[in-house]
Design a protein around this nucleic acid. Sequence first.
DNA 1: GACATATATTCCATGCGGGGAATATGTCCG
DNA 2: CGGACATATTCCCCGCATGGAATATATGTC
Lengths: 117, 117
Amino acid sequence: MIETFTALADPNRFRIVEYLLGGARSVGAIGEALHLNQPQVSKHLRVLKQARLVDVEARAQQRLYGLRPEPLRELNAWLERYRDIWDERLGQLDSLLEELKTQDLETAQRHARKKKG
Amino acid sequence: MIETFTALADPNRFRIVEYLLGGARSVGAIGEALHLNQPQVSKHLRVLKQARLVDVEARAQQRLYGLRPEPLRELNAWLERYRDIWDERLGQLDSLLEELKTQDLETAQRHARKKKG
DNA sequence: GACATATATTCCATGCGGGGAATATGTCCG
DNA sequence: CGGACATATTCCCCGCATGGAATATATGTC
């Protein structure tokens, strides 16, 4: 989790991740799109790779870097533990009814359980 | 977003945030619980406050620091844009078929609805 | 095998962030 | 008002991460 936050805390790495949201790209393409020198791109990608945020696929002499799901899933799971704090719908009967109306059973049940516990 | 990641990237600040999940606490309580010197606690709290992750409430001569929802909401919103990447349920026909095989109808139906939306 | 292209690594310099110690500010109580 | 308690700030030091420049490695082409 710390490693994920550290990797995303650098502005240029954050930009790279955002850029890769459009799909896997080569090192050169990243550097050109974000106006970064090639060595820095490689170095940032190494950090992102160690944080498992990206993986590489060799395509001839170039390497395609693409986003990986695991750290994002972990981030989501971590955030979930703070849902009581950030979810504005908490304690709102409206939302519970809305969830039931829209047949979002899993969320509704989870919230219902929380209200009980 | 960058400021949020930066604030959470430091191990001790991360520990403070985790600790505050149990409710608002005084500076002294935080330092005692996490074995941190008082000045460092204050300094970390300042960073967290600038990142809007905490706020202060004066209680006599002590200050109670508690978590704030905004940055967590923003984090959730940011993560949402990456859902295609991290949500394991997306595009997995296998799991849908598996759910049907094991007669987990409710889950299967919920997933089927999500794939539609 | 020589060469071009694409990427990775190293070396170096610099700046910023975090910890420790001391001190300042602020608040309550007698 | 003086003293105790709680917190904030400052100063100093140091390590580490980042960027730039140069160089190394790898792969494809002729």
